[in-house]
Write a protein that binds this DNA or RNA. Structure first.
Length: 280
DNA sequence: CGCACTGAACGTCAACTAGC
DNA sequence: GCTAGTTGACGTTCAGTGCG
């Protein structure tokens, strides 16, 4: 209700960076008869227990938004706030959009076209298109990019069908940012055969049965760990993004409810004056 | 200019939840 | 029960800012 009526979730300067305080503030305003003593009573362990068992930000916001039509949901992929480059949307209907660890976007269009864009650059300037010439058209609905990773030497690789790898050129990758800006800030990419060393943490569907020696098992364990760390790294980024969005929404709600509260108090005062006129 | 301080962003770990 | 995803906590890094 409040969500739709007051058009929340707009950008709002962050004044408090602690969502816990903010949630408490919202709850206090929304439910004026709620006791405020709980914060001081619970110890840190219990507090952590409570916090850790709270549903995810995505779930909270989506549940809130499901009550009210027109409320933006937190999507699986990038939200509009994160700024999916508009140039990608204008291209030939990408089936998948991925973001690299450096913030660049990889859009996979139907027919095997790979579009790479920089979120910082505007317009079509930051967009490149790589067309797969020898991999053939992917089957409908197939996931084209199998993985995005950063190799040990710092270059980025994206695995595409046909056992190929899209690799960012070392020259542009290693070039200082001011040099990249001077040259139009356009990193270049190559499609290579995967004969080059795989980045750490990427497992290319090796069957467990093919591992024999302890050394291979150790390497497999290391790869699994690297993969897990890499996934968790990305998950943490996404979680922080959702949390920021969630906090912004709460701040917006606080602002709206404060205004609402003020109006109601004024209305109450007016009604009081009407109902009990002074008799002097 | 050098230093201390601060806030934001990040990476990692651990605990937990949800889906299978 | 297992696995992947989520998120709080903690430590680290880095850029910005104020002060002597």
């Amino acid at each position: 209700m409040w969500w739709h009526q007051h058009n929340l979730c707009f950008r709002h300067p962050v004044e408090e960076d602690y969502s816990g305080d903010l949630e408490e503030k919202v709850a206090t305003i929304a439910e004026t008869d709620e006791s405020a003593e709980s914060e001081g009573v619970i110890d840190s362990h219990k507090r952590r227990e409570i916090l850790s068992r709270r549903p995810s930000y995505r779930k909270i916001l989506n549940e809130l938004s499901s009550d009210v039509p027109g409320v933006p949901k937190i999507e699986e992929e990038k939200s509009e706030e994160e700024g999916t480059p508009p140039n990608i949307a204008t291209m030939a209907v990408p089936t998948s959009i991925y973001q690299t660890s450096t913030g660049q976007y990889i859009a996979i269009a139907q027919g095997g076209t790979i579009q790479i864009s920089n979120p910082g650059s505007d317009g079509v300037q930051g967009l490149q298109a790589l067309t797969m010439t020898n991999s053939g058209a992917p089957p409908p609905g197939a996931t084209i990019v199998q993985y995005a990773a950063q190799s040990a030497d710092g270059t980025q690789q994206f695995f595409v069908p046909g056992s190929q790898v899209v690799v960012q050129d070392e020259e542009t990758e290693l070039a200082p940012s001011h040099m990249a800006a001077a040259t139009g800030d356009m990193p270049t990419y190559q499609i290579r055969a995967p004969t080059t060393a795989l980045p750490q943490g990427v497992v290319m569907a090796a069957s467990p049965g093919s591992l024999h020696s302890p050394q291979q098992l150790a390497e497999e364990a290391t790869r699994k760990r690297e993969l897990r760390l890499m996934k968790n790294r990305e998950a943490a980024k996404e979680c922080r993004r959702r949390k920021k969005e969630y906090v912004k929404c709460l701040e917006s709600r606080v602002a709206v409810l404060e205004v609402q509260n003020k109006k109601l108090i004024e209305e109450l005062e007016t009604l009081k004056d009407i109902c009990s006129p002074k008799t002097d």
